[in-house]
């Protein structure tokens, strides 16, 4: 088994839209819970990860300039991450297809964790 990082990305507008009504917010939540629990049950969930605030700072370049978030230049903001285990990238991608963020117009970036085998 290899490890893969899911990075959840979504625009602010899509996020607002998904949360548009209390009822929709609740449905979205329930879909997420169901998806996560399913990954867990099938033994793919390595670490549920953490949600990220949508604000922050960016430190850049040799000048170490600090700029404020929210990062208006980034259309899709990373909203959180999860660590999963899968046979290979194909399976990791397949598993990510169930992620509710896709229904809401967001994306899942699937990145293999680099192996450190000597």
């Amino acid at each position: 088994m290899s490890q893969f990082l899911y990075l959840y990305r979504m625009t602010d507008a899509a996020r607002q839209d998904n949360m548009g009504t209390p009822e929709r917010a609740q449905q979205s939540m329930q879909r997420w819970m169901a998806w996560m629990n399913d990954l867990d049950k099938k033994g793919h969930l390595k670490d549920r990860g953490q949600p990220l605030e949508r604000t922050g700072k960016v430190v850049r370049g040799q000048q170490k300039t600090v700029t404020d978030g929210p990062f208006t230049e980034a259309k899709d903001l990373v909203g959180g991450f999860t660590l999963v285990e899968a046979r290979d990238i194909d399976q990791a991608v397949e598993l990510s297809r169930g992620c509710p963020i896709l229904e809401g117009g967001g994306s899942v970036e699937v990145r293999p964790v680099m192996k450190m085998d000597m």
Binding site: R15, Q16, M19, P22, A25, S28, M29, W32, M33, M36, R48, G49, Q50, P51, G79, G80, T82
Partner: peptide
């Protein structure tokens, strides 16, 4: 209120309800 729901969604989906 909307903001509270957003936070709930993001935190609960990984940390559980």
């Amino acid at each position: 209120v909307q903001d509270a729901f957003c936070r709930a969604l993001e935190v609960w989906k990984v940390r559980g309800i």
